[in-house]
Design a binder for these strands. Structure first.
Lengths: 231, 231
DNA sequence: TCTCATAATTAGTGTAGACTAATTCCTGGC
DNA sequence: GCCAGGAATTAGTCTACACTAATTATGAGA
């Protein structure tokens, strides 16, 4: 018998899945993810990233332009979106059904997303009623791999007078997340922008429908990603 | 700065956790688990087991008597029971809350048990009301690491006339599990032994309280582990 | 256009854990 | 008491993935 050919379609390892997710997030804005940014996001050394990048481009999951950066291929993008779906459904399930708090689910989901089966994810999705957004307001990709690309503005950049729906909170920092929750600033809330101080000053908003005012400093206002409400 | 000493208490790896569980199961009857039995249970080669055994005994999780076998130390036993608690709570949670069927949970729990946090396990245990038995009727160790050691007889060995509670089903084979479920033979049911044919023949039982009869061949009767009911 | 700081890559190691092939130990049967 | 066959172990490889140290490419400013 021959010495067993390598499996042409091995399942992805944990590491590979993490790299793909990181690259997805980093290249969602600009076209390329830089080696050093990937290294920082995953807390590994840049040479480790170079090594993994080589392996991933050999297996066709990413496109590598030396000294420039990497991009996902459509195959890589599919795999990344699958992980993101898993992550977001897990976060939602844990908060809704097991009383996890908004700030504490991330680490748990981060480990589970590599271990759950597709079947379990779909059962959770059913139990949740096929949700479209996770607890942070981020859109959940469909099982087929489609994801809604929302046009979001940071609160810090929204025009005074605009009516907005808070859609995403752009941080995983537990302290900031808790603070936002205390202030009633969770995804889904409606608000209007009532004022902004000059020279990078704070933004004042009014919650809808209560009318309660909130003053949000620039740093935090940049984390609150909102969608403008038509009419 | 010094070249960073090795972490004296590294978290256990997936493999290590699997070996400890296997050794626990294999040594629960006789005192020692044999290399080849561990290899068969984990589907790895005997030399792989030898290698792992060396590492595990160096870290104090097992006791190795060369050419004899291995036993868990109290530290190893604690770690093994922790995994078994995780596994059994996961199986129960998946069947109760996510509509998994009795035969299909094992593989899912097998992967998840390595990824969940202690916190999640305890939340699931709470959601289940601090259960004592898993869907197969196996006792769930406590968080402190205690486990009930039941005195169980295989149905095949029970004396005619005995009144029994079915407590465990000693297989993970999905087809057999499904068959037992169809026959109403699930953990918790009560039954009396009405007859046994000689020469390793089948055992006839009556379900309690319905009185429905069942005839169980020897092979299957050995898998049905029962506890004798007093009085 | 040249230079230099920074980013990226290569070179070389280490560890966990699997494998096959070769060897050694134990024990049951004669 | 010896010996064969099976169980266990050692020897030697391989892969994935991390690391540090050394090297090279890139692009911004003088």
């Amino acid at each position: 018998m021959q010495p067993a050919l390598r499996d042409p379609n091995p399942p992805l390892t944990r590491s590979v899945e993490d790299y793909l997710k990181a690259i997805y997030h980093l290249s969602s804005q600009g076209g390329f993810a830089a080696t050093s940014d990937i290294a920082a996001m995953l807390e590994v050394s840049p040479p480790s990233v170079s090594g993994m990048v080589k392996r991933l481009s050999e297996t066709g999951l990413i496109e590598h332009v030396p000294y420039r950066g990497v991009q996902l291929t459509s195959q890589g993008r599919r795999a990344a979106l699958r992980m993101i779906r898993r992550h977001r459904i897990l976060e939602l399930y844990l908060t809704q059904h097991l009383a996890y708090d908004w700030g504490g689910v991330h680490a748990e989901a981060e480990r589970l997303e590599h271990a759950v089966s597709d079947e379990l994810i779909e059962r959770m999705a059913s139990a949740l009623g096929q949700p479209q957004y996770d607890p942070h307001g981020d859109p959940i990709p469909t099982a087929a791999g489609d994801i809604e690309e929302a046009e979001l503005v940071a609160l810090a950049d929204a025009r005074v007078g605009a009516k907005l729906e808070l859609r995403q909170v752009g941080t995983q920092d537990a302290a900031r997340l808790r603070y936002f929750a205390e202030q009633g600033l969770t995804p889904g809330v409606l608000l209007t922008v009532s004022d902004r101080q000059p020279f990078n000053g704070p933004t004042t908003i009014a919650l809808v429908p209560s009318g309660d005012p909130r003053v949000v400093g620039r740093e935090l206002a940049q984390l609150l990603l909102c969608q403008e409400i038509g009419s």
